[in-house]
C-alpha cells in the first residue's frame, strides 16, 4: 500500500507515487479547497429558512451539509459560488452576500 493522498504532493519522488497512480481511500477530493474559485458568495439567512432542504441536493459541490434532517452553514471551503441554491430556495433564505 502506497502513500495516503494527503502525503502525495508535487514534491514527492517518483518512487513514492502509488503504483499506477491508484488511490486506496474514499473522497480524497475534499483536500482540494475549491472555495478559492468563488467570485460571489451565497449567504444563508437562517431566520428565513424553513429547513425544506430543497437547496441541498442541487449543490453540485456538496457544500450544503445536512445533519439530522437539517441543513447547516455552507461549506465555504468548497462552495464555488454557482448560486443554484439561491434559486432553488422557495423562501428567499439564501441570497448573494454583499461583497465589501
Amino acid at each position: 500500500m502506497g502513500l495516503k493522498a494527503e502525503e502525495i504532493n508535487e514534491h514527492i519522488a517518483w518512487q513514492d507515487l502509488t503504483t499506477g497512480c491508484e488511490i486506496y481511500e474514499p473522497g480524497t477530493s475534499r483536500l482540494t479547497k475549491t472555495g478559492e474559485w468563488r467570485s460571489r458568495t451565497p449567504e444563508w439567512i437562517k431566520e428565513k429558512c424553513k429547513q425544506c432542504l430543497l437547496c441541498a441536493p442541487f449543490c453540485p459541490d456538496a457544500s450544503i451539509p445536512v445533519k439530522d434532517g437539517k441543513r447547516d452553514e455552507f461549506d465555504y471551503e468548497h462552495c464555488k459560488g454557482c448560486g443554484i441554491c439561491i434559486k432553488a430556495c422557495p423562501f428567499q433564505a439564501i441570497r448573494w452576500k454583499e461583497e465589501s
Binding site: I12, W14, L17, G20, C21, E22, I23, Y24, E25, P26
Partner: peptide, 16 residues
C-alpha cells in the same frame, strides 16, 4: 477500502 484507478495526471505527476 475502495480503489480508484485511472486518474487524470497533471504535469506535476505524469513524468514521475
Amino acid at each position: 477500502n475502495p480503489l480508484a484507478v485511472g486518474p487524470y495526471g497533471i504535469s506535476a505527476y505524469y513524468m514521475e
